[in-house]
Design a binder for these strands. Structure first.
Lengths: 344, 344
DNA sequence: TTTGGCACTCGTGCGTGCAGAGTGCCAGGG
DNA sequence: CCCTGGCACTCTGCACGCACGAGTGCCAAA
């Protein structure tokens, strides 16, 4: 390790930074001459060539064939992101625009939709937003509605504004008084609690009812628990798929595997799942577990109402992407969505 | 018109049918020799050539350049769909599979999601399903929940299982008895009614309350009416975008304009809107109003619970698609979704 | 340690030539 | 009158060869 650090003196790092920046801009392998022209490195092409040879030796860059320019490797991008780049903050007009665009949302669906579209537009890449997960949110209200003598609709409302509904087929006719009683007891104990904690709090509830009503109560509770536990109901919204076509030649063969990956909610969820909660995560190329995304990078971060993150959002683009800009946009959007959610 | 009909005798129509079928299969311009080999037309290539010349004269087929095979034009496909093809019914194992796959759905979201995925998989193209529209459905139940002294949550449940919720900020504290009264009065009048009719039925409602409560009642009703009127909340679900890449060479330049069109819900809604309610509609190539979809065809049909259609679904693919098969799949899926919705 | 020079490598673009597929037309036959 | 076989023609796609240019690695000198 010490070896690597010693080898990479400041100028070599500057060369790597310049290569990444140029390649991101031009999409073409960058040669030594062009490099010294576009950046004032203060040395000659020959010197740069030596540095490039060293960088290639270390695996940070790579040349597609003899006598072509150099291209950053995944490892090169990694170093660039970790050490050489700073997240580019949004300009203040951009921030105002984000704020304004998100402020118009009326309900949770709308917030998520606006967020994902905004993110796709800002980064001109594919954006992914996960709905605030049920697991981490708390109960705002649980409503029971009698639709028919033996049919009850259960509505679960969370603090993030998400609404889940379930039909319950009861074993027998349900009296309105029993239902009202059950409703108020459930809410008294569950309101404000985290979703995973609720089942424990309601366990003893059937005992408080008369023998005849217990089957009904149990059925309703079972459905409620089911709804609470249904973690895989975690939904995701996607936008900006069309942006992929702009990068046609960035993908080995076609964009097909990428599109296929994007259609699999499971893949996307796992992708976002790898984000460490608060900090921004960048997965570059083969660092992504899923094979179809081997030539893409994923920039993701958690967002939430208040101080803790309830879900994640991110951007998927070609390995050759503008990392500082993308990271800036992702961070800014996550921040504002958090604020919006906290307000509502 | 009489002229056209006279010119297109049975054999010419058979030739056109054969051309469409071959071209759909091979993706390559089809020549006279290959035609007589693959279909037993009982005549020589030279004869077929004459017929092809006539068909080209009439605008049904077209050759990309001199001495290449022929390709059907939009007009050719149109004739094929209208006169030459029969909708291919699903096989009974296929029908069972559809039935089984859709039966597993738990709520409306799930029904729509399963439907769109199924359709994409069956046709191997892009599938679109519109959520049952609020406009045509009826009220099953309206629920009011007091969340805070001056904050009420309004939940609207339709017969199609769709749930809309709205927050209402009331001008003052809302008594529980008033709320209960309002709830039962609203439901008594609105339940079972078509959504657009509801405002008319509730117009006189504030008069039934005491002077002090009227502002609250009016506010709640205003929000309800707003939710009812919000037609543009019509949502759409999409699947199978990755299938587009299979047809890369079917699109003039790239699939980009198609992907862009698919991201615009407005475009999709208008596309489906052109479907005449019950009957299946096929829009071929330039028949589509939207420019980006000029080289695609749209097969769509209404579906609904019971006898009347509440929303639409369809498939989008290249002009060169298997029309009989696609139409069969679309019809079958629409039928089963209707049944599922009617049952729930 | 940097620099300028030089020979070398390899991909790209372009023009040529050839083979194959498909057509249109024409004259002959049922 | 319609169908058929034959023939000349046209156009695309592909392989080949060639020259060009960009970019490199190495070496000797500053």
């Amino acid at each position: 390790m010490a070896g690597e650090v010693r080898q990479l003196d400041d100028r070599k790092l500057a060369v790597l930074r310049a290569i990444v920046q140029d390649y991101v801009g031009t999409e073409e392998p960058v040669g030594s001459k062009a490099l010294v022209e576009r950046h004032n490195l203060g040395v000659s092409p020959a010197t740069v060539r030596n540095d490039m040879a060293a960088l290639e030796e270390e695996g940070y860059i790579h040349q597609p064939h003899t006598s072509a320019g150099r291209i950053p490797t995944d490892k090169g991008y990694r170093l660039f992101v970790d050490k050489l780049a700073e997240i580019k903050p949004m300009s203040s007009p951009e921030r105002r625009a984000i704020r304004h665009f998100l402020d118009g949302a009326v309900d949770l669906d709308d917030v998520v939709m606006r967020t994902v579209r905004l993110l796709a537009q800002l980064t001109r890449q594919v954006a992914v937003v996960q709905y605030p997960s049920l697991t981490r949110s708390t109960v705002r209200h649980i409503e029971l509605v009698a639709l028919a003598p033996a049919k009850v609709m259960l509505v679960l409302i969370t603090n993030t504004g998400r609404v889940e509904q379930r039909m319950v087929d009861c074993p027998g006719t349900v009296g309105e008084t029993v239902l009202a009683d059950l409703r108020s007891r459930i809410n008294a104990r569950a309101a404000g609690q985290r979703l995973p904690d609720v089942p424990g709090l309601l366990e003893e509830l059937p005992a408080a009812f008369e023998q005849a009503d217990r089957p009904t109560v149990s059925t309703v509770l079972a459905t409620l628990f089911e709804a609470l536990a249904e973690q895989n109901e975690e939904r995701i919204m996607l936008a900006g798929t069309a942006n992929l076509t702009r990068f046609g030649h960035d993908f080995p063969l076609t964009i097909q595997p990428v599109l296929e990956a994007l259609e699999e909610q499971v893949v996307l969820l796992r992708l976002l799942g790898e984000t460490t909660d608060a900090a921004m995560t960048v997965r570059i190329g083969r660092e992504n577990a899923y094979e179809g995304l081997n030539s893409t990078s994923v920039v993701s971060v958690g967002y939430g109402s208040g101080d803790e993150s309830v879900a994640k959002l991110g951007v998927i683009g070609p390995t050759r992407m503008d990392y500082p800009g993308t990271m800036g946009a992702v961070r800014a959007v996550a921040r504002y969505v958090g604020q919006i959610l906290a307000e509502s």
